[in-house]
């Protein structure tokens, strides 16, 4: 069993948590400008990393807050826990974020273009 440290409630057993999948998947701002292939990348393709992976968890049996976790999928080591809406600060987390194929995807570029208003 994993011990996950909820940013609010402290360390708890993993059966109190709900897994939310890969973190930092931005919704495209103008989906109509994406091809079917690019839309499918956004919807269906996940990183499936072996090693540090950025993922979302919710403390569903406790305070019901969402947060981000950097977890090594090979060893289950939890490297960093950080709030929603922020980027990882640990070297492993930064590397996993920047090395993710999604940073170069058309869907993410489309999403960021929408955020900046262009």
């Amino acid at each position: 069993m994993l011990h996950i440290t909820c940013p609010w409630c402290g360390p708890r057993d993993d059966n109190e948590f709900h897994y939310g999948g890969e973190a930092h998947i931005l919704r495209p701002a103008a989906p109509e400008k994406l091809s079917d292939g690019e839309w499918a990348e956004y919807l269906f393709l996940k990183q499936n990393a072996k090693g540090p992976f950025l993922e979302r968890w919710s403390h569903s049996a406790g305070c019901r807050q969402w947060f981000n976790v950097v977890r090594n999928t090979a060893t289950d080591e939890i490297i960093e826990i950080y709030p929603m809406g922020e980027l990882p600060k640990s070297p492993e987390g930064i590397k996993a974020y920047e090395g993710n194929w999604r940073r170069q995807s058309a869907a993410e570029k489309n999403a960021k273009a929408g955020v900046s208003g262009t």
Binding site: C9, R12, N15, E16, A61, G62, C63
Partner: peptide, 10 residues
Amino acid sequence: CVQSHLGRIT
């Protein structure tokens, strides 16, 4: 106070 599982329920 605590929110957790007791006898498997929340």
